[in-house]
Design a protein around this nucleic acid. Sequence first.
DNA 1: CATGAATGAGTATTCATTCAT
DNA 2: AATGAATGAATACTCATTCAT
Lengths: 191, 191, 191, 191
Amino acid sequence: MKRKEIIVESATSLFASQGFEATTTLQIAQASRITEPLIYYHFGGKDELFTHILSTAFSLYFERFDALPKNSSTELERISNLFKMHFQIAEDSPELMRLIVSTCPTKLHDPESECIKNYKKARQALFDYFSECLERGIETKEFRELTVSETAHVLVALTNGLLRQKIFKLADTDRVKEATIEFCRVSLTRL
Amino acid sequence: MKRKEIIVESATSLFASQGFEATTTLQIAQASRITEPLIYYHFGGKDELFTHILSTAFSLYFERFDALPKNSSTELERISNLFKMHFQIAEDSPELMRLIVSTCPTKLHDPESECIKNYKKARQALFDYFSECLERGIETKEFRELTVSETAHVLVALTNGLLRQKIFKLADTDRVKEATIEFCRVSLTRL
Amino acid sequence: MKRKEIIVESATSLFASQGFEATTTLQIAQASRITEPLIYYHFGGKDELFTHILSTAFSLYFERFDALPKNSSTELERISNLFKMHFQIAEDSPELMRLIVSTCPTKLHDPESECIKNYKKARQALFDYFSECLERGIETKEFRELTVSETAHVLVALTNGLLRQKIFKLADTDRVKEATIEFCRVSLTRL
Amino acid sequence: MKRKEIIVESATSLFASQGFEATTTLQIAQASRITEPLIYYHFGGKDELFTHILSTAFSLYFERFDALPKNSSTELERISNLFKMHFQIAEDSPELMRLIVSTCPTKLHDPESECIKNYKKARQALFDYFSECLERGIETKEFRELTVSETAHVLVALTNGLLRQKIFKLADTDRVKEATIEFCRVSLTRL
DNA sequence: CATGAATGAGTATTCATTCAT
DNA sequence: AATGAATGAATACTCATTCAT
């Protein structure tokens, strides 16, 4: 593996576990078994390195998001797909996801940061996805009558809560995944 | 207001918006219009001050939690009460709640920290509360047959997700509150 | 002597002999027998410390300039006074003068710097002083007919050249002072 | 133009405007559109590059100095020639001259440096030239009786002051040149 | 209760320089 | 002749903390 990639890996791991501020360039250098200036040579600085990693994380997230099947036999299946995708991405790239869910809030005071822009974009994508599913589901009588926007917000919150639970290993997730889908199925479908 | 209290207020605000690491004792001192040594006189240091504030935050949380009515006519109402309590506390003490939800994850690597202990304790309390409600509800046929533990985890995740949504002002929350309760009502109760 | 003053002294000496860029905060700290952060406590940084010293130097210069007797029996005496003043100030405060003549040019590319502003102000004062002397001298027939502005520029250049000669100890200055006055006397007066 | 020459040009410009210390090899490389190691390939390092440029500057200076006509009808003309030569060289090679007059003083603390050696050599040449002119002029009664050595120092100072004035564009120089020669003519020649 | 002065230990960053290719 | 990658040594500056008063 190239040294540039090693730096990214070490830094991702450190940022994810300690946060941006608590991670020093020296720690990154030592974890990568290189010297500090090389970080500057390849990435220009701590901030840029962080931004680089974060944009990788978001790219991965949006990639997975876009790869979701556009059409399914039922809207419940599409909702279920989204939940599963989140469980999966948290399993595949726990550190990158952790970076997103736990480091971004620290930077919320700067609404111009790439971090926050992507964070909001992701939230919006989630909201739009759920809204569309709900609307279509109601139209086709798959779902009961419900307030689309509000319920979409509930589902977004649920998704985020579950993602955190998984990332921070706060609960056995496999069976929770089933329960989540069942929970939503009952709530959304007519009977 | 006493200077000691002023320090606590300024520090809470700074810690909540910037995080622990990014907040300096100088910032706290300037925001409080006092000098740095006074922080040491009153609290012994930055860590102690943070711990002090955080324990206040958790005290407040557990206080509200314990103040929830033990008995209600229905278990759904008890669940509803818990949601409402979270919406309320996020409204009353946004900074303290923000401190809990966004600063604690940064400290997760140190499982011995007071922060993490309380965080897990709070999660457990939430889980136990939901578990009890679900069990009782199933017993009394108020709720349908469902897997208690898993569903409790779903409800915990939902609660956390909603709390974040409220704290970071990511959605209009009043109507989301109603939608949440309705969402759960339909999912949990028998038809 | 207070530590703050010690820092100023050491820094002046180092800046004067090595220039701004080549002088490090560590050198200043060691020469002052204090630690680096104290420089930041008292002066805010290397730049501010330099600016502080430089403004002291210019204050001293303008003070001496303003203290020159406004009226003399002859204009030649006034010109002579100005030369003597420069020889004197270079003798009394060689380091401060050295700072002005050798460090300012390095900063010429930033025309907004306090350094350059003062440098130009000093040049202008010199030019105005000589111009006035020449004008009056011509009026009273003390001096021959000559082009005031151009000759003033010559005298300014001469002053600067002499100041440098003295500061950098490039010539025995006592007798040069006499020769300078004599040189100008012959050139300016009629016969 | 060869890359080696481009480096010299860029470096000259940067050294002249910012000084030696404030100029980095990276700046030179970027200004030359080459990479840093090439500087080392061609010149061995920053110091050597600087020395190379400086010796070019002094070569140019001494060349012009030596090219001055050895004999003239009057000594005043020879003095005038020297002044004119300085005005001319400052016009032809402002950056090289600027390097000499403003960078050398920074290095004065190291009397062994090539820079200082040349600087003193140039001063001495100037002094000798003026001394010879004055001596001969007195002998031939072209000049009045005056103290040769001291007056030579005055003329050296004047030359330096004028050179600076020109280099740093502090005065309109064409008419100052005339005034300088006239100023000296009146002062030196018998009535 | 409060502060001015002071510092040890870091912290991100820069710079001249080297080396393998 | 030229460069991408890499580094040792330094550099300005920060921070939590202490202490005498």
